[in-house]
Design a protein around this nucleic acid. Structure first.
Lengths: 158, 158
DNA sequence: GGACATAATGAATATTTATACATTTATGAT
DNA sequence: ATCATAAATGTATAAATATTCATTATGTCC
């Protein structure tokens, strides 16, 4: 897993478990965990992860994960171990994911529930999923978003 | 209703209907509507209303209502039980219609039978329909045709 | 009405955060 | 490998926003 992905995964954990109000605090925690980056990088990470800042009753403002991610962490961690993922390719604004026979639907459901901005719709057959990309979204955007949300895919996507 | 409540109500409306990235823009819109306040007051309003700022795909960051408020504006489930229509989006030459679970097929059949010039084919899954647009047909062409034939859709397509 | 308390607001400022620019590092293609 | 391209990051700074402090409005109790 690339350093960036590791850091962003850690970041999600931190924000999930704490109420943090400024990037400076996040930086310190990251530092404790061995990630030495600057505020600028952190700011970019937060943007990529779609982490927002919302008013909190007790504290002023705190960082919060987007709904999609919050939902995702309810799922059992090993749910992804048997996704049946085979490959992903893209042509124009359509991405095609191949899965093991019969796995397309369940995999597509998982993707649906991520509510990714990059995807405007999915369609699953038996072992094939079509992802219709949003206008302007690139293959790389999609891949990054998928890996961000399903880190297990990292090794299968290049 | 006190001036403050009026202003905050207006504020929620504005944020619900627009993608706005900074308080300055909000201030201008408020001004147009007769509310003359400063950025400081606006900042306090946003905090009271628990309005946060979240990353958006196209724009950088946009203000967003807390989840509780967002859910309110979702139409009652039975609103168009006859069709199950949820939303329509387009990317390139493909339009994607989302329906309630299980409704895609019947809705697609209805569309098929309209024999619209703008559509060269449809494909339905469980809750998603793909419409392949004819070369040269725009999203607006499609929307116009759909509304013309299924007036009930009028209010859900903008 | 006047006196007191509380809420609302503005002006100025400190804090926080995004981003332009430059540089380095990784990734692909031939 | 070598070149070309894109991605990742740091530095410095601009942009955006929360807050401090002072002032004005809005009650409410007598």
């Amino acid at each position: 897993m690339s350093e960036k992905i590791k850091r962003q995964t850690t970041l999600k954990q931190i924000i999930e478990l704490n109420r943090i109000g400024k990037q400076e605090d996040l930086l310190n925690i990251l530092k404790q965990r061995g990630f030495n980056v600057t505020q600028a990088t952190l700011s970019r990470d937060l943007k990529e992860l779609k982490i927002g800042k919302i008013p909190d009753f007790d504290y002023g403002y705190v960082y919060a994960l987007p709904n999609a991610n919050i939902r995702k962490r309810i799922k059992s961690p090993d749910e992804f171990s048997n996704l049946g993922f085979r490959s992903i390719d893209v042509s124009g604004n359509i991405a095609v994911i191949k899965t093991k026979s019969g796995y397309a639907n369940s995999f597509a459901t998982i993707i649906d529930e991520l509510f990714l901005d990059e995807i405007i719709g999915t369609l699953a057959g038996n072992d094939t999923i079509l992802l219709i990309l949003k206008e302007g979204a690139t293959f790389n955007d999609l891949k990054r978003a998928l890996i961000l949300n399903i880190p297990e895919l990292q090794e299968f996507i290049k």
